[in-house]
Write a protein that binds this DNA or RNA. Structure first.
Lengths: 226, 226
DNA sequence: GCCGGTCCTTGACTTTAGTCATGGAACGCC
DNA sequence: GGCGTTCCATGACTAAAGTCAAGGACCGGC
């Protein structure tokens, strides 16, 4: 039995609390693999035979248009799993995935996992909770794209980061171009939005470090309409 | 035992194939209720204690901004269930819901349903498939909003309708203002987009009836970038 | 410490879509 | 059958964000 694989599996949040025998049977079907920054894991429209979990590194999931514009849907880091959708539908991946850094990944095949779910209701409930939380995020993303302008979306993003990092000195977790793609815009427009927030005295920016000067003001802006 | 309730439950796709005893225990916890067109079922942010299924009628799920602009996320009709997200997260509804017509609804409380899921792995798999298909739809919606312009989104919507209705003579299932809200725009802009497709000879429109003249052309547009 | 690359910013311009205002068509109601 | 209401279409205008082009900052490799 591969203890590397077992410890990797144990560090995935979705598998937390899974009893040892089930973790072992997961280890029998899961594969551990490395991949390099920039490597494509799968593309939108390909048949989805496996889902993934990040052991180390960072992966982005996105949709691209023919002209090369891209919309990032999520970015996943250590402990998170992704691409579960085709597991339960038996169809294609709805989006593409690419490693942003050199990463270690677990790949888990559809078939065996569904079998395990049949026997493990608590794991199944965990999966439902995970899918639900992702739906909640997407609902928010749709609302932001349709209802808010770029500076407001940026304000919301910074507030989320602040909540995650627990202080006013933020370190951007992605290059700005990728943040633009996540916010549904392009680097030029993001630059101008950053400038706008800076001019309003809400933030200070130096490279990938951001200081939140006025969290209240950011929140007001993020909620604002017009 | 209320046979109305039982037949209503049996007509919900999520509960198809559920053995009689489980259907009965669902009937014990589910409530059947009517509601009038325009009635609000719940609002974004309220604690989510129940989920819903449509027996007859039509319900829209949407997010509103403070200024009154609205983005429709989905419209549900007979046989469909919605608002499952808080069931598995135990938190708030991520969006609001309102009846578009006089409707009959089933409401199913969180607690009992989770218990049932623990005992019924096949139902649990059905729930996961449902959540997954919804994630797939949302991924598509995010990509459309961010990557495509209004006429292209409209073309995609019409093609979906055509696939659903199985012919080139379409009947719009929603008033145009609601379609605008679903496409992430406003009625004026939708009007102009319709005119554009008409001028290009792709469709003919008379009130809520649309004839697709050039499905290929629509598809090319829907895929297009620029 | 210089070179080459990537990433980011800025400016001028164009395009898209939203805003405001108006008028017309369809529908239900007395 | 008029009357009001709601919904839809159109025009003129404004605002937001994308495009194109250029240049600067930063980083890693040698």
């Amino acid at each position: 039995m591969d203890t590397n694989k077992l410890t990797a599996l144990g560090a995935i949040r979705l598998f937390e609390g899974l009893p040892a025998p089930q973790l072992n049977s997961l280890a029998e079907i899961a594969q551990l693999r490395g991949c390099k920054a920039g490597e494509t894991l799968f593309e939108s429209g390909q048949p989805g035979t496996h889902f993934f979990a990040v052991v180390t590194g960072k992966v982005r999931v996105f949709r691209a248009s023919l002209s090369g514009k891209e919309q990032i849907l999520s970015v996943f880091t250590a402990g998170e799993s992704f691409a579960e959708v085709p597991v339960f539908e038996g169809k294609t991946y709805p989006a593409s995935a690419q490693a942003l850094e050199d990463s270690q990944l677990l790949t888990i095949p559809r078939r065996g996992f569904v079998e395990l779910l049949r026997r493990e209701p608590e794991l199944a409930l965990g999966v439902m909770a995970l899918l639900s939380s992702r739906l909640r995020l997407f609902v928010g993303q749709i609302a932001q794209l349709s209802l808010k302008e770029v500076p407001e979306r940026l304000a919301g993003y910074l507030l989320l980061l602040r909540a995650a990092q627990g202080r006013d000195e933020l370190t951007l977790d992605l290059p700005k171009g990728q943040i633009a793609s996540y916010l549904g815009t392009i680097p030029e427009t993001l630059s101008r939005a950053i400038k706008k927030l800076t001019d309003q005295g809400l933030i200070e920016v130096a490279g990938s470090r951001v200081r939140v000067l006025d969290a209240e003001g950011l929140a007001a802006l993020a909620e604002a309409d017009r």
